[in-house]
């Protein structure tokens, strides 16, 4: 018998205020893979993530985590086992970096010295100086905050990570740097990652598979290699738009 997928969407639909946000969505994410949800803004990517940690509840269908319906699990324990990084980062402004990162370990009952060691280890892992621990979020750059957001999600070493456009608001150079670090990190940690982006370049670079979404529906799921050669109309539209932006950058020269 093959192992249960780490995350499984079984015919999930989500409707709110009469709007069909997600329709009959089925998808399996294998343990240790980085599955990228790619789609334009409003296609239902964030909704898909929030269904996993039960920030929202599906209208029909179910989501299974390691073979167990997430509606059966204790919601607090479920969430503590799933790291969550949101685009706006959402660091606690009244906590130091250290308390931000150490919050989940400490409320999960870790002894203080173990939490402290963990914070130090994570700062190093995301490429920040140890002194950063005592700073407050408003004293940090956007890139540093984003790194803290990732460190905070990793703090209690959850096997699953949900990342909602984590590098979207950054300048291109910082984004490139963080993408590279994410790849290196993922080589090492092998988490199950559900990663949301609207940027094809990011999807191709980070994803082991790419799930393409449009208007609340799953269009297709392809590996990056197959994605660039796909004759799916939406996938090729993405490739074309992406290619044109490169060409116009070259062709812009006299």
């Amino acid at each position: 018998m093959p192992p249960d997928p780490a995350i499984e969407f079984r015919r999930v639909s989500y409707k709110i205020d009469g709007a069909q946000v997600l329709s009959d969505f089925s998808l399996e994410i294998a343990s240790g893979e980085t599955l990228v949800l790619l789609g334009r803004s409003g296609s239902g990517k964030t909704t898909t993530l929030k269904l996993v940690n039960r920030l929202i509840i599906p209208t029909s269908g179910e989501i299974r985590i390691n073979g167990l319906a997430n509606s059966e699990a204790d919601v607090i324990r479920l969430r503590r086992g799933i790291g969550y990084v949101i685009q706006e980062v959402g660091l606690f402004p009244h906590f130091t970096v250290e308390r931000n990162i150490g919050l989940v370990p400490s409320i999960s009952g870790w002894p203080a010295d173990r939490t402290q060691d963990r914070v130090r280890e994570l700062l190093q892992l995301v490429g920040l100086a140890p002194e950063t621990a005592l700073r407050y979020p408003h004293q940090l750059s956007g890139g540093q905050r984003q790194r803290i957001g990732v460190a905070r999600a990793l703090a209690a070493d959850p096997p699953i990570l949900l990342m909602d456009e984590p590098f979207g608001a950054l300048d291109p150079l910082t984004r490139d740097e963080l993408q590279r670090e994410f790849q290196a990190l993922q080589q090492k940690l092998r988490k199950t990652v559900l990663f949301v982006t609207h940027d094809l370049r990011e999807a191709l670079r980070l994803g082991s598979r790419i799930a393409l979404m449009e208007s609340g529906k799953l269009v297709t799921v392809l590996s990056p290699q197959k994605f660039v050669r796909s004759d799916d109309p939406l996938a090729s539209a993405y490739i074309k738009a992406f290619g044109e932006s490169l060409e116009s950058a070259n062709g812009g020269r006299p």
Binding site: K50, N53, L55, I76, R77, L78, R79, R80, Y84, I86, E88, V89, G90, L91, F92, P93, L103, V104, I107, G149, R152, A153, L162
Partner: peptide, 13 residues
């Protein structure tokens, strides 16, 4: 900030 609350809830507070 709604993002702060969502992050807190999502982390399992």
């Amino acid at each position: 900030d709604a993002a702060v609350l969502e992050a807190g809830r999502g982390m399992g507070l």
